Computed example of a mutant assay.
Amino acid sequence: MSIEDAVHNIGERRPGFRPRVAFVLGSGLGQVAERIEAPTRISYAELPGFPVPTVAGHAGSLVLGRLAGVDVLCLNGRVHAYEGGDGAERLKVLVRTVKQSGAEVLVLTNAAGSLRPEVGPGSLVLIRDHINMLGFNPLQGPNDEAWGPRFFSMRDAYDPALAARFHEAARAAGIALPDGVYLAYPGPNFETPAEIRAFRTLGADLVGMSTVPEVLVARHCGLTVAALSAVTNLAEGMSEVTPSHAETLEQGAKIAQSLEKLILAFLESLKHGV
């Protein structure tokens, strides 16, 4: 899998373009990409070694352009560990292509279940830390020193300065934005009520099936990271509603409007310095 080939392909399609911020859009959140001005759209399938999502709600396209006056690279869709194949390598290709494209900041979004009754469907939550229950790390195996060190700190994996900027943007946009700890669960099944009770004991506020591997690869190669969860449901055992992917997509589409408003306010703030 050649990251250089993917970056070269992107450069041919949009010569001289250097994004400042990259976004990954999760399940049902793809409409944010529709706001990008003067877009160049590239299917993941056209990029050598790029991971092609197999899950509904993940378009599998890269969009380059301007959003709120900032040059951005938007990854509309992601792959998950439960999709099988060489997931670790595919995740590294996606994130390292972002790094090689020149982006300095990676903003990850996902659809998640809430473990806090007061943070119900329709809420946005800023991830401040995570718990990795996936059972793997995409950086396991031989380390490539060209990308990053063998051992690296995750103390501020979710950048405090970016978090402060997102909170400021949320206040400006009139959007409630609590902090939370995200727990990554392997899936593809939803969690059991007993697992949710255990995860709450561990200190988790949110549960989902993505994001953590991307954060690991991003921090390894020096990208600055922020992450947002769009709450689509209360986790299993916390309501009478049985979680489903259809509900995730439906609720994600509803929350996408608030997410778009928050992202635009965040990008507006970047015009005045990082």
Rank of each mutant, 00 (worst) to 15 (best):
L259K: 05
R155W: 11
A246H: 12
P51R: 01
I42H: 06
K254A: 15
S101V: 01
E214L: 09
N110E: 08
H80N: 09
R78F: 08
S269G: 12
V125L: 11
A194L: 04
N76G: 09
A173Q: 11
A33D: 13
L124A: 11
L106Q: 00
R66Y: 14
F50P: 03
S210V: 10
G203L: 00
V217N: 00
R35Q: 15
P186L: 03
L267G: 09
Q100E: 14
L47V: 07
N9V: 12
E260H: 10
A59H: 08
G84Y: 04
G180L: 06
A235V: 04
G174D: 12
I263P: 05
P243L: 11
G26A: 11
R197C: 05
F166M: 14
R165W: 02
A204Q: 01
H220F: 08
E37G: 02
L126S: 09
L126D: 09
A103F: 00
S27R: 07
A184Y: 03
E37F: 00
K92T: 01
N233R: 11
M1P: 13
G69F: 03
V55E: 02
A227D: 06
A157W: 06
N76F: 04
I3K: 01
S2Y: 00
D5P: 00
R90A: 15
A227Y: 04
V125F: 09
H220G: 04
G30Q: 08
T211G: 06
D129N: 13
P213H: 05
M133S: 06
A194K: 06
R197L: 10
Q257S: 12
L94F: 01
M238K: 03
V7H: 00
G252D: 12
E34L: 14
V107C: 09
G222V: 09
E145M: 13
S258A: 14
P186I: 02
I42R: 04
G237A: 07
P213M: 05
R171G: 14
L223M: 08
L67Y: 10
E236T: 15
Y82R: 05
A172E: 14
V105I: 15
R200L: 00
V98R: 00
A169I: 05
R41K: 13
E145L: 14
T248F: 03
P51Q: 09
S258V: 04
A103S: 14
E236L: 09
A111K: 04
S258W: 07
H80E: 04
E250H: 13
E89R: 13
D129H: 01
L259A: 11
Q31N: 14
F190A: 04
P142S: 12
L206W: 06
A6F: 02
L94C: 12
T109R: 03
V21P: 04
R14S: 13
T54D: 12
G102R: 01
F136W: 15
L29Y: 12
V79R: 03
R200A: 11
L262T: 09
L115I: 05
Y82L: 08
F166S: 03
A176G: 12
G49F: 07
V241D: 14
